[in-house]
Design a protein around this nucleic acid. Structure first.
Lengths: 155, 155
DNA sequence: TATTGTTATACTCTATAACTATA
DNA sequence: TATAGTTATAGAGTATAACAATA
């Protein structure tokens, strides 16, 4: 703690801000790393006019055709009232469509349109390419280790 | 991809949502881990009536007495208009005080009051205790490794 | 009685433009 | 001319309450 150790006189100016303590906290580092990747992600998805939540919804529908809104909410941690506009906008763009649910007439099964499938294929390819760029300073082994340790945190 | 491999018939129901693809993305894992820790952090700081940004500001002032608002903005990635209310509220709670800056009469040096110092000491102790709980499933070595790899991502 | 999807709404967070006092 | 701090304001993200249709 360079700045506090010296016990500076009153009204002294700080030249460079000491962030040592915050950097010792896992939460600070996880948040900074997450924000860095999220920022890259948003930039690369902008050409497709997709936010992260839009990408997540489309990708989940691609891998789970017939999934319901409620299931998407539970999976992504989005509250039902907030998913309405998200799904609605994707439907208006004709990237997804609602079909009758086989067992529950309250719910709708969500499916990708052909345009939606084409877009998801491109977007997932972009996301996978981003993986390598975001972890460019990591070796392949380090990348695997980081994934494993992150999952140990939240699972 | 269990659900899509089987090429389900139209209008089939999804029992469990396959999140395998999203979980293969570093951004998804970093965000999930970050949110998990942030959630714990918010809960433990609630008794002190501190949000994460409040804790960060107080801790930075503690370790950098005389730091300016502008320096806090640059360090934390908060835009100047948004820091005004944050600093203003901490000042109103008499946790911090502004003093004349020695070299720039536009700026103010920020300092902790005695109450602020007492609160930061408690809050940092809580934060450090949280570190161990948040990474309870990691060994000491894994924790160090995770910190190092996260910093490699954003630095 | 509980759940799915929805509307309306409020609150927080983040972002931009423009101003003042000083450098 | 540029910078520190500020005000006002707009937009995005996130939250709760309440409702209709169906389970």
């Amino acid at each position: 703690m360079p700045n506090s150790r010296k016990s500076p006189p009153p009204n002294a100016a700080i030249e460079t801000v000491d962030t040592g303590y915050l950097e010792s906290l896992m939460g600070y580092n996880a948040r900074r790393a997450s924000l860095a990747i999220v920022e890259m992600f948003m930039q690369r998805m902008a050409p497709y006019d997709l936010r992260i939540v839009d990408f997540s919804v489309l990708s989940l529908i691609a891998h789970n055709p017939g999934v319901t809104s409620r299931q998407l909410c539970a999976t992504l941690g989005v509250l039902p009232p907030n998913l309405v506009a998200i799904v609605g906008a994707l439907e208006k763009r004709e990237l997804i469509e609602r079909r009758l649910h086989p067992r529950d007439r309250r719910a709708a099964g969500l499916y990708l349109s052909e345009a939606g499938q084409a877009l998801v294929q491109q977007a997932e390819q972009t996301a996978s390419a981003l993986e390598e760029d975001a972890t460019a300073r990591l070796t392949a082994t380090e990348r695997k280790t980081l994934m494993r340790l992150l999952q140990k945190i939240y699972r």
